[in-house]
Design a binder for these strands. Structure first.
Lengths: 143, 143
DNA sequence: TTGCTCCTCACGTCACGTGAGGTGGC
DNA sequence: TTGCTCCTCACGTCACGTGAGGTGGC
């Protein structure tokens, strides 16, 4: 989207982000990724390094949290809103407004962390169970 | 399946395992769950506490590891093979054979642990990033 | 008997995979 | 020009969701 960065085609973006061209087109179709500019029908989609980061982040949230694309859209929108707030924070002088913005960001981060921590805790429990079984087998091997 | 335990119907099993009756029927259809005995067509499926444990474990692996049902089937079959080996271990006297069985169990656990640890590590990285952002916001709030 | 849950089709949906046939050019 | 990747349909698949119409009984 940026005019300065070197342009990537859809296959390269897919490889960089660990997915497929079909998936990228589908995400664009349902509005999870923005339309790639005013592109005459049949013309190639072009992306930049920022798009790579953005898509990587989306794929990571999807895989680690196991959310639907609808929920993922909400998360991404919330993330965009947070970016907009951050921009406003830089512009604004009023201390009260700045404090408000920070508190909102904090709330958002807390919700995200809650989701991630719950999942991480479940995974740790599974890992502990497997490790315990492994220890029992090793103890028997020594006997 | 056991004759002694109190029988559950499909809806109860679904509630206990955190899924739906439709999902259980589908898993039976594709062979991920065993057919519920010789059941005359139209008759209710019946389950016991062991089935609850089994299905809970399946749902947990599915959600935490994000594997396809085909891969999940492999995992469950490997788990069954492990259970069979454990039974053989109890029966068998020969020290060499017992050792072989333990080594096979160890290899299986190592593969499972590898999968779980990789995912746990990714989740920890995401958690750390979010936590770092949270700390930055809190530091600004104090300023 | 009345409710409630269950049964079996069977079509719908979500998130893509996979050609078919054609066009573009970091 | 020749390859390679891209384009847009459009149908297929996986993992279920959701009725429709009917039967069972921990």
């Amino acid at each position: 989207m940026s005019a300065t960065a070197p342009a990537l085609r859809i296959g390269e973006l897919a490889r960089e982000a660990g997915t497929t061209a079909r998936t990228i087109r589908y995400y664009e179709e349902i509005g999870l990724l923005p339309d790639t500019g005013q592109r005459p029908a049949g013309r190639h989609r072009l992306y930049d390094a920022g798009d790579v980061e953005r898509l990587r982040e989306i794929m990571r949230l999807k895989e680690l949290l196991g959310v639907s694309l609808e929920e993922l859209k909400q998360l991404v929108e919330a993330e965009d809103a947070r970016a907009a707030l951050r921009a406003e924070f830089e512009r604004v002088e009023d201390a009260g407004r700045r404090r408000e913005i920070l508190l909102e960001a904090l709330g958002h981060l807390d919700r995200q962390l809650e989701l991630v921590r719950r999942r991480a805790a479940e995974l740790r429990r599974l890992e502990a169970e497997l490790a315990a079984r492994r220890r029992r087998v090793r103890a028997r091997l020594r006997a």
